[in-house]
């Protein structure tokens, strides 16, 4: 009796009711998505971790089994930190990690600088303009990501649109080498992830009470100062949400550095891809993935916190 009361205390409202029906309906609702995510999201990470600790071998699948069935039915566990050790000693991986963080960070800043005025302008626009403007921001997001990245090849290449325009204007007389450099990667990431920055920023700015700015003006604060002291601090949650939505996936980005960056634009996602598909070193690829995840644990936790508070939108 005491125990049922205990468990009921936690559940209120709709849940409490469902509980009373017996668990059948509720258990079904809970167990299906829960089991799915456990199997297809959580378990895979454990497997990645396991394989990261295994040795590479020439076989299919190309890794040693961590738990081998030995004759006397005892389990013998072979653990090796070889892969992690290799990653730390080889400059390539460290450089790739640092480079990924740097590229993701700079791109996030670019998204913020470019996205903030857009989000602010839409939030400030006449209400009847807001929906169409927002639609314009979202529309590219619904078209193919790959194709949008591809578009930049035509713009940035040596005989591409940008160089042609600049030469025609007489600003330069030699084509600039932009494609296959880190700059192209910055542009590509900023371009692809810009809507993810604008949307959370917009939803924060749109909720901002306009009378706050009126009160500030009434108290003698000029508009630019009101922006710095009121709008900007109050939009920090939106900035954080947007920055995380850009930074975290950008760190592991593969397609953009592969298509726009040169061979020297090392990013960890690309390194992982190469280890996996070209070198077929699955354990090393797994170790790279584990290390990348370790880098991202803190930002992801912050993101989940923000997401939980807002009730969320992508």
């Amino acid at each position: 009796m005491a125990e049922t009361v205990q468990s009921e205390m936690r559940h209120t409202g709709f849940l409490g009711l469902l509980q009373r029906v017996g668990l059948s309906g509720r258990a079904l609702v809970v167990s299906v998505p829960y089991a799915w995510l456990l199997l297809f999201f959580l378990v895979p990470f454990l497997i990645v971790l396991k394989i990261a600790l295994a040795e590479s071998q020439m076989a299919i699948p190309p890794f040693t089994s961590l738990i081998e069935n030995v004759e006397d039915l005892k389990y013998q566990i072979t653990v090796t930190f070889y892969n992690f050790h290799y990653m730390v000693t080889d400059d390539l991986y460290i450089v790739a990690y640092l480079n990924s963080l740097k590229i993701a960070f700079i791109s996030t800043i670019c998204c913020l600088l470019l996205g903030y005025p857009v989000a602010y302008a839409i939030a400030k626009a006449d209400p009847k303009w807001r929906a169409p403007l927002l639609m314009l921001v979202i529309l590219p997001f619904w078209t193919s990501f790959l194709i949008r990245v591809y578009a930049w090849i035509g713009i940035l290449s040596n005989n591409g649109v940008l160089n042609n325009v600049l030469m025609w204007l007489g600003i330069i007389d030699q084509p600039l080498q932009i494609l296959y450099t880190p700059v192209a990667t910055y542009i590509g990431i900023t371009y692809s992830y810009l809507p993810f920055m604008i949307l959370p920023l917009y939803s924060t700015l749109e909720k901002l009470d306009n009378t706050l700015l009126e009160a500030a003006a009434d108290l003698g604060c000029p508009p630019w100062k009101a922006f710095l002291t009121i709008t900007l601090p109050l939009s920090i949650p939106g900035m954080i949400a947007g920055a995380l939505l850009v930074f975290i996936p950008a760190t592991g980005e593969f397609v953009i550095p592969e298509l726009l960056g040169g061979p020297d634009t090392l990013m960890i996602g690309r390194t992982l891809w190469t280890e996996f598909f070209n070198n077929r070193d699955w354990p090393l690829a797994s170790a790279v993935a584990v290390a990348l995840l370790l880098f991202l644990v803190v930002p992801i936790m912050i993101f989940q916190n923000v997401q939980g508070k807002q009730g969320g939108h992508p």
């Binding site: 009361v5 009921e8 205390m9 209120t12 409202g13 409490g16 009711l17 009373r20």
Partner: peptide
């Protein structure tokens, strides 16, 4: 109404 259940 039955939306909440008394603890006691």
């Amino acid at each position: 109404a039955g939306f909440e259940r008394p603890t006691e």
